[in-house]
C-alpha cells in the first residue's frame, strides 16, 4: 500500500480558514426540516388569515398536527347497536343495579391514570361513560384486541341508554380526534312491558356535541322502539306517528304550562325517514337541549298507554320523548 501526502497551498488554506471562521462566528443553517414530526406544528387556529392546516399524512389533534397512522382510536364491540335488554325497573325507577358487559377495542397505549405521567402522544387511558356519567377507567393491560369491561348500571329505567368511550391523554386532556370517541346506544325495556311501550332516542347529535354560536343547521337522526315514524296524517293509530323536534324547550315541564310546548317545535321527523334538519338560533357560549317528542299522526301529543292525553292525564299518561344536551361554543 502506498500513501501520498496532500499539500494545500497557503492561499487556499488561508481562504479556508477565513471561511471556517466566518461560519463559526456567523453560524449556518443545519436544520433538517421534517414535516412528519408529530405534535410539533400548531393547527386549528382561530385566525383564518393564517394557514393552520397540517401537512399531508398528518391530522390535527388537540390543536397540533399528529401522524395519521398513530392516532388513538376506540370502538365498542358489544353490546351491539340498539340491543334491547330487559330490566325490572319502571319508568319511575326502582330496581337494583345490574352489570353490563362491554367489549372494547382500540389503538392506545394504556398508562395508569394516576401515574402523573407527562403527555406522550398515543399514550393514555380510556374513560367509559354510561348516559354521560363517567363510570370506569381502562388504564391497564391493552385494548388492541377485544377487551371486556364490566359496568354497573344504576340508571336502569326503561328507555334509551348511551355508552361512550373517550381516549384520554396522560395529562387528563381528552384526545379530540374523531376516532378517539366511540359510542353505542342500547335499550332497556321493562320485562312486563316488552313490545308495548314506545320509545324514541336521538341518535344524532350525540350529547355534548359542539356547535357554533352562529345560526347553525343541525341534523337530527332518531331511532324508535315500538313506534313507527310516518308522515303526518289525520287518523291516529297505535304505535304510529311522528316526532317534533324542540330546541332549548323545557320538556316535560312545558306540557303543564298554559301555552304547552306545541308552538315551539322547529322540525318534524317522520315525513321523510328518520332524519330532519332545523336551524338553531344564534346563541352565546352555553349549553342547549334538543328534544324529540313523539306525536300522533295528527300532531297531538302521543302518550302511553295509547289514546291517553299527556297534557291532561298527567298521572296516568307519560309523554314520550328523548333529550340531549349540546354545546354552543364560539371556538
Amino acid at each position: 500500500m502506498s500513501m501520498s501526502l496532500h499539500t494545500v497551498s497557503p492561499r487556499v488554506a488561508a481562504l479556508s480558514f477565513v471561511g471556517a471562521c466566518t461560519l463559526m462566528v456567523g453560524g449556518c443553517y443545519t436544520v433538517e426540516f421534517d414535516p412528519t414530526v408529530g405534535g410539533a406544528f400548531r393547527c386549528n387556529l382561530e385566525d383564518e388569515e393564517i394557514d393552520s392546516s397540517c401537512p399531508s399524512g398528518m391530522s390535527c389533534v388537540n390543536d397540533h398536527c399528529e401522524d395519521e397512522e398513530a392516532l388513538p382510536s376506540l370502538a365498542v364491540l358489544s353490546p351491539e347497536d340498539q340491543l334491547v335488554l330487559e330490566t325490572s325497573a319502571t319508568v319511575q325507577g326502582g330496581a337494583d343495579p345490574f352489570a353490563l358487559s362491554i367489549r372494547v377495542q382500540g389503538s392506545l397505549t394504556l398508562v395508569s391514570a394516576t401515574s402523573g405521567a407527562e403527555h406522550v402522544f398515543g399514550e393514555g387511558h380510556v374513560a367509559v361513560f354510561i348516559d354521560n356519567e363517567e363510570q370506569a377507567i381502562i388504564d391497564e393491560g391493552g385494548i388492541s384486541s377485544s377487551t371486556p369491561v364490566e359496568i354497573e348500571i344504576t340508571n336502569n329505567v326503561p328507555g334509551p341508554h348511551r355508552i361512550a368511550l373517550q381516549a384520554r391523554r396522560n395529562d387528563g386532556v381528552d384526545y379530540d380526534n374523531e376516532g378517539a370517541f366511540a359510542t353505542r346506544l342500547f335499550w332497556l325495556e321493562n320485562e312486563l312491558e316488552v313490545g308495548l311501550r314506545p320509545f324514541v332516542a336521538i341518535k344524532s347529535p350525540w350529547p355534548h356535541t359542539a356547535f357554533s354560536t352562529d345560526d347553525e343547521d343541525i341534523e337530527v337522526e332518531l331511532i324508535t322502539r315500538n313506534f313507527t315514524l310516518v308522515p303526518p296524517n289525520t287518523m291516529q293509530a297505535d304505535s304510529t306517528g311522528h316526532s317534533h323536534i324542540y330546541y332549548d324547550t323545557p320538556w316535560p315541564d312545558c306540557v303543564l304550562q298554559p301555552d304547552g310546548c306545541d308552538k315551539d317545535y322547529l322540525g318534524v321527523v317522520g315525513a321523510d325517514g328518520n332524519r330532519t334538519q332545523f336551524t338553531a338560533p344564534a346563541s352565546g357560549d352555553e349549553t342547549a337541549t334538543i328534544t324529540a317528542v313523539l306525536r300522533h299522526v295528527d300532531h297531538f301529543p302521543y302518550g302511553f298507554p295509547f289514546e291517553c292525553d299527556p297534557a291532561t292525564e298527567v298521572n296516568l299518561c307519560q309523554p314520550i320523548f328523548d333529550e340531549v344536551t349540546i354545546n354552543r361554543t364560539s371556538r
Partner: peptide, 25 residues
Amino acid sequence: GVLARNRGDAVNGVQFGGNPDDLTF
C-alpha cells in the same frame, strides 16, 4: 450566517423544543 442560524434555531424550537411560539406548519 447569524440570520440563517436564528431561523434554524426557530425551526428546531418548533420541531424539538415544544414549539414555544405556537407556529403552524
